[in-house]
Amino acid sequence: MTLALRPGPLNLITDVPGLTVGHVTDEAVCSGATVLRTDGFWAAAVDVRGGGPGTRETEALAPENLVGKAHAIAFAGGSVFGLAVADGVVAALSALGQGLTLKPGSPAIPVVPGAVLHDLGNGGDKAWGLEPPYRRWGLEAVATASREFALGRVGAGRGAMAGHLPGGIGSASLDLGGGLVVGALVAANPIGSVYMPDGITFWAWPFEIDGEFGGARPVGHAAVVDPLPDASRLAGLGRLQAGANTTLAVVACNADLTTAECKRLAMMAQDGIARAVRPAHTPFDGDTVFALASGAVALGESRAVELGRLGSAAADCLARAIARAVFEAARG
């Protein structure tokens, strides 16, 4: 009999050894930042499928380019202003001596890709003039990063929406046995709905473990034929605009993946968004998935098979993380 797989002890992305997460949440601004730190220079890649992304240093992670690794991933609200969170993370990590050193005596150069979501229309105080707070939040998030962190309306998910409902930060993990652990972290701000037509059951329900997002199950067989539910309502909320919505995610594992293999991990993980949100990858979203691998656990001879298993697990974790984000946001 096959044993059921379980989440790690925290059911967070930080069940992958070597990761920590820091949030900064500003209630006055109704925005925030979330930073995922690694304990070294991890293999990394990114896959972008939304039509309105807001990103930084994604080309540095392309398999054909030189770097293909990262010291941290930075997420924030604030649209283009939020990209400055990574500036703060870079400064903080460099001051700690973390980063590439190309010449003795020169500053350490951290590689910190990132992405942002749009929360500028949520009523918070955005009158920051020439001093947006996002760089400062990056500094603070690095200083407060730990293995345990909050979910829901915190950090980069503070001003997020999921359709017309509150979005937020979600995370989940899965222990695959043999020392392999996979996890996902998401800032959920999609235009699509995370709920089935009953408005109660998450699309991600088949992947739920131990009632982690409420345990609701579908009753009956409501037809799913409307390709963009609540379109008129979303238009009235200003959601049907390019870049006004997105799902930002990181999936991570402790396998010894290359940058190219991390790219495949990120590509497969995108299916987690499609499993948890309908519709996904629209012209209005900026759906972006980063992938990280620490290299601590060597894969066997059936490397492609194991990579496929890791990618499928990453997609499942991401679907669960999205549902957890909205579930925890609703709980306040």
Rank of each mutant, 00 (worst) to 15 (best):
E301V: 14
A296H: 13
D226P: 07
G168H: 11
A60P: 03
A141W: 13
R264C: 03
V182E: 02
E57T: 01
T20Y: 06
G40Y: 07
P104I: 03
F284S: 01
F284M: 01
E57V: 00
M161K: 03
S302P: 09
A242E: 01
A231G: 07
L174W: 03
I200W: 03
L83G: 00
L174T: 05
G82W: 00
L151G: 04
I209W: 12
A293E: 08
V326Q: 09
T144V: 15
A321W: 02
T259A: 14
K263P: 01
W203D: 04
G97M: 05
F290E: 01
P218S: 06
C30H: 12
A28W: 09
E140Y: 09
P113E: 05
V224F: 14
L139Q: 14
Q241P: 02
R135F: 05
I200T: 09
A28E: 13
G215V: 07
A325H: 07
R303T: 11
I109K: 03
A255Q: 10
A329S: 15
V90W: 02
V90T: 09
G138I: 05
L83H: 00
R233T: 12
G286T: 00
V35Y: 11
Q270P: 02
R6K: 14
S232H: 15
C317P: 05
T258N: 13
L12I: 06
S171H: 04
G272I: 02
A70D: 06
V219M: 06
L102P: 04
G295L: 12
V80E: 00
A321Q: 04
A304K: 15
W205A: 10
T58H: 08
I169S: 06
C262P: 09
G177I: 13
S146W: 04
